[in-house]
């Protein structure tokens, strides 16, 4: 982000949606729940659309179906931990099939 000081950690990671139903309301709610635990700003990007990872309506509009790949970025002191936690959630398929 342009306004961010240079020493603020910024990290990005690509993540693949694994659960059958994709990012519908329930997984989106879990996503923001996890993202909101961290101080870092979380951004999710897919197909040139970038939204806040703490906005439920934003996440839903990305249309992340099974097999889609999104880029999750975290900007802030706990960026690494935030990405780890989000990745763990995505990889355990949001507790779905």
């Amino acid at each position: 982000m342009s306004g961010t000081p240079n020493d603020t950690p910024t990290m990005s990671r690509e993540m693949k949606i694994l659960n059958k139903h994709g990012m519908h309301a329930r997984p989106a709610a879990m996503f923001i729940k996890v993202a909101s635990r961290f101080e870092s700003e979380i951004l999710v990007e897919k197909d040139d659309t970038r939204i806040s990872g703490k906005s439920i309506m934003g996440l839903l509009t990305l249309e992340l179906y099974q097999g889609s790949v999104m880029t999750v970025s975290a900007i802030g002191p706990d960026a690494a931990a935030a990405l780890d936690a989000i990745e763990e959630l995505v990889n355990r398929k949001f507790d779905e099939e």
């Binding site: 139903h21 994709g22 519908h24 309301a25 329930r26 839903l60 992340l64 179906y65």
Partner: peptide, 14 residues
């Protein structure tokens, strides 16, 4: 209702 609509849309895309 929104959730059901989403699940259907995501299924079509998949």
């Amino acid at each position: 209702e929104l959730d059901e609509k989403l699940v259907r849309a995501l299924e079509r895309k998949r």
